[in-house]
Design a protein around this nucleic acid. Structure first.
Lengths: 326, 326
DNA sequence: GTGAAAGCGCTAACAA
DNA sequence: TTGTTAGCGCTTTCAC
């Protein structure tokens, strides 16, 4: 890898001029040509590490998600990536596994790697944004929020919960349960509050045990559904607050020999690749990709020096019924 | 962010000693303690950018995949990530969209960012590994190979194709078609050669048009399946050479009103989250995660200075029939 | 075992 | 417009 000095020597100019050419600063036409020719000849590419050390910043965005195997987050990541590309930024995608220790480790890396900013879906309320914040690097929370004062992009979770539950009520179900995510995550709370609001207002039957907390994965949804089916008076429908738990719930129903057409299921999120989609499943589409794109846009604005007060952008989910055939 | 100089000053030692402490070099017990205390007190984290500039290398692995939204590649990514973590390496995940230009751009970034090595699933045969190779950085091809002389980890694609097709023959199907990926990708060729070998040996009926090439996505599989169904004498079964195309094929069958139980479908790969799995679907499980883990292991060995001759590791796919309920 | 000092490749004052 | 020069924070000889 050639350096700026070799290019300068070959072109007969100073290293500073070479630097200026590659940073779009004012250089005379002629020297510009000279430099470009020399660079071409040597196959010169600016060394980003050196530039970064000098400038104390890079053009890399760090994206932290809890589960890279969840299609919701891959779609979100695509949104971030597409937007970043447009501005010449690269994206480093990291998987936290919902583990605060891993999350912290990645945040420290982001700081010591001089990354330009961070977009994250926090693993817990206790994210430590100290290191990254003290460097003045912007942070945007996406999907999940944090008590830390940062920009955020989220979904109107309560409205999504209301839409899902309402659809089940209107389909004639009267004993509607809810499988929510782990307690203590605000996003989850809002979603089941939406469910609660509807079942209360519509006076449907709610028994002890109709609200189940589970982890966000397939196995969590399955266990919760089994618990619901074991109740002496089981529900006739269920709202699941994310995509993977819905898969688990549908699996449990299938294993119990229950025809999905006879049991109402509403999902906050989309059932990836599911086919044929049981016609009784209500999907509330969460705009994952758009969520990512919006977060990236906000982050890039901050990186560009935008100093307006902190914002939280709330995106509306869109109900899809009958279900999409994908 | 505190620097090594501030820590040195506080601990009453030289910067070199601080560096030695953080690199596990010989330093007396006492100074070691002094340095650690001072570092703790200042919240010091070594600046990786500076270290990288100095050492001309980092502890970051670059992983390039064609489609981050394909569950096969996310599983592969998990395998890479898990293994990298174990050795204290981080993984940068990049999406090439099967676009050689994007791929090249990321490879250049990998080079100029001094990344320790690259694992990639090449978008085409013409990958230019020049920049990265000239730096002496190791490269491992995964899933797909390249004419460039690098280590590789792949699946025994022909055997997988044979297994899938054989299962259909044994289930009694006699007019078996094949939906293969784009022409010119070796991995794909091997898979349909497996199909061809079986249909020839077993003397099943093969008509013109029974071999369809498609892109690797859902829409490709769907279009190919529709083309097959439009034949004057359509097939009674199909082998699809990746997961997403199988989804598309199943969609097309569903839309054509064909009961999946009456039409044989074999997939090279797994149908993500599909439920209930039509019992006629044969899945040949590709060990995606293991593929990633193996590639990471090989790369880390090379990074560690391993100079043995180039290797290609071939992993065996495993047939799963009746289909997994996940 | 420890310190002084040079330098990785680049950018940004400051001068000219 | 252009060149000179001083670092960015770290590692690593080379002395001691």
């Amino acid at each position: 890898m050639a350096t700026i000095y070799e290019v300068a020597a070959l072109a007969g100019v100073s290293p500073a001029t070479v630097s200026r050419v590659f940073n779009g600063n004012t250089v005379s036409e002629e020297k510009q040509r000279l430099v470009r020719d020399a660079a071409q000849q040597l196959g010169f590419t600016p060394n980003k590490t050196a530039r970064r050390l000098r400038k104390q910043s890079s053009e890399i965005i760090c994206l932290l998600v809890p589960d890279i195997e969840n299609p919701f987050f891959t779609a979100l990541a695509r949104g971030v990536e597409d937007r970043a590309q447009e501005s010449g930024f690269s994206v480093v995608l990291c998987n936290t596994d919902d583990d605060p220790a891993k999350e912290l480790r990645y945040l420290q890396i982001a700081a010591s790697e001089h990354m330009a900013g961070v977009i994250l879906s926090p693993a817990s309320d206790e994210v430590d944004l100290g290191a990254i914040a003290s460097l003045g690097r912007p942070v945007v929370a996406v999907d999940r929020t944090t008590p830390y004062p940062v920009d955020a992009v989220k979904i109107d979770n309560r409205a999504a919960g209301i839409a899902a539950t309402t659809a089940l009520v209107e389909a004639g179900f009267r004993r509607i349960a809810c499988i929510a995510g782990p307690a203590g995550i605000e996003e989850t709370e809002d979603r089941y509050l939406g469910w609660k609001q509807v079942v209360t207002a519509r006076k449907t039957l709610v028994r002890d045990g109709f609200l189940q907390h589970a982890n966000f994965r397939v196995d969590g949804g399955r266990a919760a559904m089994n618990a619901l089916l074991d109740l002496v008076q089981p529900p006739d429908a269920v709202v699941t607050t994310n995509n993977l738990m819905a898969i688990g719930a549908l699996q449990a129903l299938h294993e119990a020999g229950i025809d999905p057409e006879d049991f109402g299921v509403a999902v906050l999120g989309e059932l990836p690749y599911l086919l044929p989609p049981p016609s009784s499943v209500v999907q509330v589409r969460l705009p994952a990709r758009h969520l990512g794109r919006t977060a990236a846009t906000m982050l890039l604005e901050r990186i560009g020096g935008d100093t307006q007060p902190l914002r939280t952008v709330v995106l509306r989910a869109e109900i899809a019924r009958p279900p999409l055939s994908l």
